[in-house]
């Protein structure tokens, strides 16, 4: 017997990220919690970046998917702490990123105390998601969305997006 909360959580988990639609909100790690309180589903989400313009769309997509699934009242809350980390992208999500031609993030830096400066080019051991070559080079640490850096492959010469470590 599936509980109401489990059914609501399953519906919410399948909502897709508007900017990286190969990922569900659960894959991306932004869906933090789903609870049922009386006749209200309370879903909690956290922003990837402070200015993430997809937050409002995620909220509305959650409301509409859950409403369409028969839940009468849906409330979406924001959770700010702990701050989202790219480490929260699931293995399933990483595979989906690779399948879509994106490079998944490596381990996020852990920092407490003063943040070290990096003046050299970002050193990541990346594999080209298109041809598998390890000869890749960064083009820019800022890409098409806040969460991505832009790389190019020195073998197949194709550019590709890399989801940044934060």
């Amino acid at each position: 017997m599936v509980s109401v909360r489990e059914r609501a959580a399953a519906v919410a988990a399948e909502v897709r990220d508007p900017e990286m639609p190969m990922l569900t909100l659960a894959d991306l790690g932004v869906l933090r919690d789903v609870q049922v309180d009386g006749d209200t589903v309370v879903a909690s989400i956290t922003p990837t970046y402070s200015g993430c313009p997809a937050m409002a769309t995620m909220r509305d997509d959650l409301v509409h998917r859950l409403t369409d699934a028969g839940f009468a009242r849906v409330e979406v809350r924001v959770v700010l702490s702990p701050a989202w980390s790219s480490d929260w992208i699931t293995e399933h999500g990483r595979a989906a990123l690779r399948a879509a031609g994106l490079s998944p993030p490596g381990p996020a830096p852990r920092s407490s105390g003063p943040v070290p400066l990096t003046l050299g080019p970002a050193r990541r051991a990346l594999t080209c998601p298109l041809c598998g070559s390890s000869r890749t080079e960064p083009v820019s640490e800022f890409g098409a969305t806040a969460c991505k850096a832009l790389y190019r492959c020195a073998d197949c010469l194709e550019p590709f997006d890399h989801v940044k470590e934060i």
Binding site: V15, P18, V42, S44, A54, M55, A56, T57, M58, R59, D60, D61, V63, H64, R65, T67, D68, E75, V76, R77, V78, V79, L80
Partner: peptide, 17 residues
């Protein structure tokens, strides 16, 4: 209905905080 671009209106950035 979830295909509409509903996410263009205002929302409270601290909803539930």
């Amino acid at each position: 209905s979830s295909q509409w671009a509903f996410g263009t209106d205002f929302e409270d950035p601290l909803a539930g905080v």
